[in-house]
Design a binder for these strands. Structure first.
Length: 298
DNA sequence: AGGTTCGCCTGCGGGC
DNA sequence: TGCCCGCAGGCGAACC
């Protein structure tokens, strides 16, 4: 599920609710996620300093380190009231004390009486049907965690550019779609946004990375940034089960040009879009708009 | 070392 | 109605 825009949507959603609060309790109902969940007991009482993101990993910075959360394919984190009924696959709850050093946004979803200390508690609730997600605690610098230490650059950061992609693609014959989905190269680009960015750049997904000229990589770096930033603005993409921290879906789905549209007409030129499997992942492209070298008829 | 495939899970839609 | 199959937003491990 969640690619960078969905994770960022979640980050922005939970940030104002948890920053400044202290962990009151962590309830783990099912430890069997991607890796067995094993959190230290001394997290209780620690204050949340910030909520960050590295690639598709959410980083809850607390006093002694970071809670590192990955949503896998089907995970979601929601802010709910402490009386919210449990649903299937609600695997982890992180309960926070009512004290807070930050002002909440208007429109609280938690059912509570204003000013009441005890009823002001909120839960950060993790639901994950497929259990491909993960929860870890890491002391100190998050970048040294084994899951994060070899991650590539942030696509919305300064290090990411056409020049960077061009340099890293030398002598690599891997399909360009697989290259931009490789988290050691650039983080956060999953199956949906890879297909969309390649369409916007006019590049055929199966093109060998080393055959693409730098000019075309300039264009690709731009469209990757564009599609991710656009999707963040719209709260991510909801195909089936993604919901933001307020339980609402994302609206970027209606902006998708190729993903999930195999055998349908291209929205630009009306040529039938072509489906293909690349690296075990379904992809879709327009045979007319997407020519290997980025040539576009426009 | 780069490239490819596997496997972890549940849920859902389509075909029969 | 029900069963079986294939497929789904990720990604590290284990293969060549």
């Amino acid at each position: 599920m969640p690619e960078l825009p969905e994770v960022e949507t979640t980050r922005r959603g939970i940030e104002p609710w948890v920053v400044g609060r202290r962990v009151a309790a962590i309830t783990i109902r099912n430890r069997q996620l991607r890796w067995p969940v094993d959190l230290p007991h001394d997290l209780v009482g620690q204050r949340v300093r910030s909520v960050g993101r590295r690639g598709k990993y959410l980083l809850l910075e607390i006093d002694t380190g970071h809670l590192i959360v990955h949503l896998g394919m089907s995970g979601s984190l929601r802010i709910v009231g402490s009386d919210e009924p449990l649903e299937t696959h609600d695997h982890i709850d992180c309960r926070f004390t009512s004290e807070s050093h930050t002002q909440h946004a208007e429109g609280s979803h938690a059912q509570h009486a204003e000013g009441s200390e005890s009823s002001n508690e909120i839960l950060l609730r993790y639901n994950d049907p497929r259990r491909f997600g993960s929860w870890h605690f890491h002391e100190g610098d998050f970048a040294t965690h084994w899951l994060l230490e070899s991650l590539g650059v942030e696509p919305l950061g300064n290090e990411f550019s056409g020049q960077y992609l061009h340099r890293i693609s030398r002598n690599r014959k891997v399909a360009i779609k697989n290259l931009i989905m490789d988290s050691k190269v650039v983080v956060g680009v999953g199956n949906i946004y890879a297909a969309e960015a390649l369409f916007m750049a006019g590049i055929r997904p199966a093109t060998a990375a080393r055959r693409i000229p730098e000019r075309t990589y300039d264009k690709l770096a731009l469209t990757i940034r564009q599609v991710l930033a656009d999707a963040v603005r719209q709260g991510g993409t909801t195909l089936r089960d993604f919901v933001g921290s307020d339980g609402q879906p994302g609206y970027f789905g209606q902006s998708l040009k190729v993903y999930g549209r195999a055998d349908k007409p291209c929205l630009v030129c009306h040529t039938l879009l072509k489906g293909q499997v690349l690296g075990q992942r379904a992809t879709v492209y327009c045979p007319n708009c997407q020519r290997s070298q980025g040539f576009q008829r426009v």
